[in-house]
Amino acid sequence: MAHTPNQAPTLARKPHLHVYFEGQVVEAAQALIPVTTQAFNYGTAVFEGIRAYVSDAGVLNVFRLEDHLKRLENSARLLQLDNLPDRAEMKAILVDLLRHNQASTDSYIRPLAYKKALLPGVGFGVKLSGVSSGLVINTLPMGAYMPASGVRCAISTWRRIPDVSLPARAKITGSYANSALAMESAQRQGFDDALMLNVHGNLAESTTSNVFVVKDGCLITPPLSAHILEGITRDTVMTLARAELGLKVIERDISFSELFSVDECFLAGTGVEIVPVTQIDHYSIQAGQVGNITAKVRDLYLKTVRGQVPQYAHWLSPVIH
Rank of each mutant, 00 (worst) to 15 (best):
E230N: 15
L135T: 04
R306V: 14
D163K: 07
I228G: 08
S261K: 10
R169Y: 13
Y53A: 08
S107H: 01
I155Y: 08
N202P: 08
Q279M: 13
H100R: 14
D299Y: 09
I280C: 06
V290N: 08
Q102R: 14
I228C: 10
A113R: 01
Q308W: 04
K115F: 11
A148Q: 05
G43T: 11
S75H: 11
D253W: 07
N41Y: 05
L259K: 02
Y176P: 05
V297W: 01
I33L: 12
E66C: 06
V164N: 01
D96S: 03
E273N: 06
H18D: 05
G246C: 13
A170F: 10
S132T: 15
D67L: 00
C265Q: 02
R64E: 03
L267D: 12
F212A: 03
D235E: 14
Y114A: 05
H3I: 00
L135S: 11
E205A: 07
S206T: 02
E22L: 13
D106M: 05
G123K: 07
Q189K: 15
A182M: 02
V122R: 03
G288T: 00
A170H: 06
G246V: 04
A52Y: 03
H100Y: 15
M183S: 15
I155V: 15
S75R: 00
A313W: 07
M196H: 09
L97V: 13
I161W: 06
S185F: 09
G49I: 12
D235F: 02
V297D: 01
C153H: 05
A226W: 05
P85D: 03
M238Y: 05
L259N: 09
E205M: 10
A148W: 06
E244C: 11
